[in-house]
């Protein structure tokens, strides 16, 4: 017993030292951000057409979600995007990239990409490939997937390159194949014009029309098409195919 007591006393004289926690030191990063379910990351292409807007526009702004990796700041910081290989649009003619100040304390924010309805857009589809540019505040952020948790809306993606197709023609929106194809059938420019005319909206993305729009709009379109066909005969698209909503 006494022996045990002495041993315990000896050990008791040595205490633990607190170890300093290593923190990340370095420049904060920025990357593109999307939820996986949006199917916008890495391989996907976003699209914009001046033809799909409800009014004629000479310029428009496309908002691109970005995310900061690193520490939040209580000071405004600047972010800039630059073009990467594969870009066919011309900066200053078809689009503008400007240095943008992001508000303090924000980790996810929208970068305003200015698109210009240039002369060439009427007959071309231009591609813009973007990546974050080095600024005094940011370098390229951490990339990859963040698993879903109880707070987030699902698996999240940080990625380096974002492809955007921009035109003033009726091109197939990127969301068409993902969401609309099953209920609205194949895309055509004339079908899209018919949809805009019947339903009075120009954005048919799932976020805009919802689950009821996905199911109810084709019913309205089939009714309107039947009325049109009764008066004018079949409605053909630009490829000579008869338009239908399956």
């Amino acid at each position: 017993m006494k022996y045990l007591l002495y041993v315990t006393m000896v050990f008791s004289l040595f205490s633990c030292k607190k170890e300093a926690v290593e923190t990340y030191q370095g420049k904060d990063g920025v990357s593109f951000f999307a939820y996986t379910f949006q199917q916008l990351h890495t391989t996907a292409t976003r699209s914009y057409s001046f033809a799909f807007q409800s009014t004629v526009k000479t310029r428009d702004t496309m908002f691109i979600p970005l995310r900061i990796t690193g520490r939040l700041s209580d000071q405004p910081r600047t972010v800039l995007l630059k073009t990467a290989a594969g870009t066919s649009a011309t900066a200053g003619v078809d689009f503008e990239l400007n240095e943008v100040a992001i508000p303090p304390g924000v980790s996810i924010f929208n970068y305003p990409l200015v698109l210009i309805n240039s002369v060439g857009m009427a007959s071309n589809v231009y591609r813009i490939v973007l990546e974050p540019s080095e600024t005094k505040d940011f370098t390229l952020g951490t990339l990859g997937q963040t698993p879903a948790n109880s707070v987030s809306q699902g698996t999240e993606e940080n990625f380096r390159y974002l492809k955007i197709d921009v035109t003033a023609q009726y091109i197939e929106p990127a969301y068409w194949e993902v969401y609309l194809a099953a209920d609205f059938g194949a895309f055509s420019a004339l079908k899209y014009k018919f949809m805009v005319k019947v339903l009075g909206i120009t954005d048919f993305s799932y976020e805009q029309i919802g689950s009821d729009g996905l199911l109810n709009f084709p019913v309205a379109l089939r009714n309107a098409l039947a009325t049109y066909e009764a008066e004018n005969g079949p409605l053909l698209d630009e490829n000579g195919q008869q338009i239908s909503f399956p």
Binding site: G210, S211, D212, L215, N216, V219, A220, R222, N223
Partner: peptide
């Protein structure tokens, strides 16, 4: 609950 469609053609 969501709204109803038009008359199913």
């Amino acid at each position: 609950v969501k709204p109803f469609s038009q008359r199913i053609p």
